[in-house]
Computed example of a mutant assay.
Amino acid sequence: MTPRDASDGNGGRWSDLDRPPLNATALRRGLVRQGGLWREVEVVQRTGSTNSDLVARAADGRAAEGAVLVAEEQNAARGRLDRRWTAPARSGLFFSVLLSPAEVPVARWGWLPLLTGVAVAAGLARSAGVDTALKWPNDLLVTVDGEERKAGGILAERAGDAGVVIGVGINVTLRADELPVPRAGSLALAGAVSTDRDPLLRAVLRSLEDWYGRWRAAGGDPGPAGLQEAYAAGCATLGRTVRAELPGDRSLTGEAVALDGDGRLVIATAEGVRQPVGAGDIVHLRPA
Rank of each mutant, 00 (worst) to 15 (best):
E255W: 02
A288H: 13
E65H: 11
G36Y: 10
G261H: 12
F94G: 00
L93Q: 02
V70N: 02
V181T: 14
G123F: 12
C235Q: 11
D161M: 07
L22T: 08
P137R: 13
E73K: 11
G234W: 07
L189N: 08
L54H: 04
A230H: 06
G152L: 12
R175P: 00
R19D: 10
E103R: 14
A279K: 04
S194Q: 02
A256L: 10
P224D: 09
Y212N: 00
L115T: 01
D196R: 14
R243V: 03
I282R: 04
A89C: 09
L252C: 07
R240Q: 12
D161N: 11
L37S: 04
A67M: 07
K150E: 01
I166R: 00
G248N: 08
G30M: 05
V118Y: 00
T132K: 05
R183V: 11
D210C: 03
V181Q: 15
G191W: 12
A64T: 15
P276F: 11
R78T: 11
T241P: 01
N138D: 06
D82S: 15
K135F: 02
L114I: 13
L141Y: 09
G48A: 14
V204D: 01
N51T: 14
G11E: 13
V165W: 03
L259G: 08
A162I: 07
Q228K: 14
A133H: 07
S194M: 04
Q34A: 14
T47K: 01
A190H: 09
N171P: 00
N23L: 13
T253R: 14
Q45F: 11
G254R: 09
L114P: 01
A102I: 07
G9C: 13
R197M: 12
D60I: 01
D145T: 12
A230M: 09
V142D: 02
L187S: 05
V164N: 07
I282P: 02
E65Y: 01
D60M: 01
G30K: 08
E148H: 03
G12E: 09
D53F: 06
R240P: 00
S49I: 10
A87T: 08
A71F: 10
V97T: 14
D210P: 00
N138C: 05
P105M: 09
P224C: 07
A119D: 01
